[in-house]
Design a protein around this nucleic acid. Structure first.
Length: 266
DNA sequence: CATCATGTTATAAT
DNA sequence: CATTATAACATGAT
């Protein structure tokens, strides 16, 4: 389930092991999550180190260790991080477990769409030096959003919102939520928004990110009751605004959930 | 058994 | 070359 706020929440779980020596490590190095990782270097490099800092950007997480070791983790579709009390025995889908005296820092991911990268050096991995502004950052401005929409004027807004180059962290439920709050259908084209709508979209994106981080991101609380969020998967799911039946429809290969009555063009 | 899943990417087609 | 569609990845839930 991990999008912006979920990723933020999971990254925090490993704070339980902050500044504690890694005494041992369990790794299932043959699984797909390590497809782009030097697992030998990781296995040799991490024991003895201490977790120093944690940061997230969009759906990516970066963990810095005491001697210039860096772990980049993406949770894919089903990944989770947790800190478990010792003694801990790795479970079925645990791919990486960092043991400290008191806690086991666990990365688990049944579907293995997630990934782990290992980097050594004084500075963060190169990919972390040139990052686009996240939707809740200062650099995510109205002019920037306007330009994105203009440059991709023929792309359905739903697909555009899922593009991590422009909206890092926004995933399927947040994109549907933003469109629902905007009362716009998912297939409306980026270029179809007038100036007023662009500013409203900017506000809505910021708000959905902020509130998600304040709820899900803090303690896995649900977002507000009057959001689309919790009605989108329920049986006989109805729009919490107008009670019409929600529809599910594939837009550019992803399922969009939306209300055909209150989400209309313009 | 068939379908679907809060994600990304390689490859093919346009 | 840029955009778009499709398949693939591996597993579990319904």
């Amino acid at each position: 389930m991990p999008e912006l706020a979920e990723v933020f929440y999971y990254a925090k779980q490993w704070d339980a092991g902050k500044d504690k020596r890694i005494t041992a490590l369990d790794i299932r190095s043959k699984t797909r999550v390590f497809r782009a990782c030097d697992t030998t270097a990781l296995t040799e490099g991490l024991p003895g180190a201490q977790l120093r800092s944690t940061r997230t950007h969009g759906k990516q997480m970066l963990f810095e260790f005491s001697k210039g070791q860096w772990l980049t983790i993406h949770l894919g579709m089903t990944g989770e991080l947790a800190a478990k009390p010792q003694p801990y025995e790795p479970a079925k889908h645990d791919h990486l477990v960092l043991h400290t005296r008191t806690h086991a820092l666990v990365f688990t991911d049944p579907r293995q769409f997630g990934s782990v990268l290992y980097h050594q050096g004084k500075t963060p991995p190169p990919a972390w030096l040139t990052l686009p502004p996240q939707p809740m950052d200062e650099g995510f401005t109205v002019p920037r959003l306007r330009e994105i929409l203009q440059r991709h004027a023929r792309t359905p807004l739903k697909a555009l919102l899922l593009d991590q180059r422009w909206f890092p962290g926004i995933g399927n439920w947040m994109a549907d939520e933003i469109l629902w709050q905007m009362k716009l259908p998912p297939h409306i084209l980026g270029g179809a928004l007038d100036e007023k709508a662009v500013r409203a979209l900017h506000r809505t994106i910021k708000k959905v990110c902020r509130v998600a981080l304040e709820t899900v991101g803090v303690d896995w609380d649900d977002p507000p009751l009057n959001w689309l969020f919790r009605y989108r998967w329920e049986d006989g799911h109805c729009c919490p605004r107008c009670e019409a039946e929600l529809v599910r429809e594939s837009v550019r290969g992803r399922t969009a959930c939306w209300c055909p009555v209150c989400q209309r063009p313009r």
